[in-house]
Amino acid sequence: MRNPLLLILIAMLLLTGCDNMRPEPVESNLTNLSVEALILRLDNALQRLEYQQGEVGANLGRVGMRMELRTVQSSLEQLGYFNGPRLGILDDKTVDAIDRYLENRTSLLQESLSQ
């Protein structure tokens, strides 16, 4: 008999201190990275994925590898090369974005260092 009461009590406790029950926009630390940090992240991820000319050497059937690809996609998005859903799938759009990034990588790095 006491258990439902206890549950209600917990529910009420949960509600205290929340006057607005609407979700507030989330800001993740990962979205405010500097260009250098993004390039570093991309380099690491691409290396782990063994990316070469539109192909990845790693097994994308593994979650971990898809997570790496998702990191690549989100970093590219922040650098302005990619704007698709980040699902860790290597489609043409992603390959295109990676290639465009790789072309500009050196100039991007120099730009950010000179600033």
């Binding site: 979700p23 926009p25 989330v26 990191t71 989100s74």
Partner: peptide, 11 residues
């Protein structure tokens, strides 16, 4: 999904 946190990079 409701919170919109899906749009971030977190996992």
């Amino acid at each position: 999904i409701i919170s919109g946190a899906l749009l971030t990079d977190l996992t």
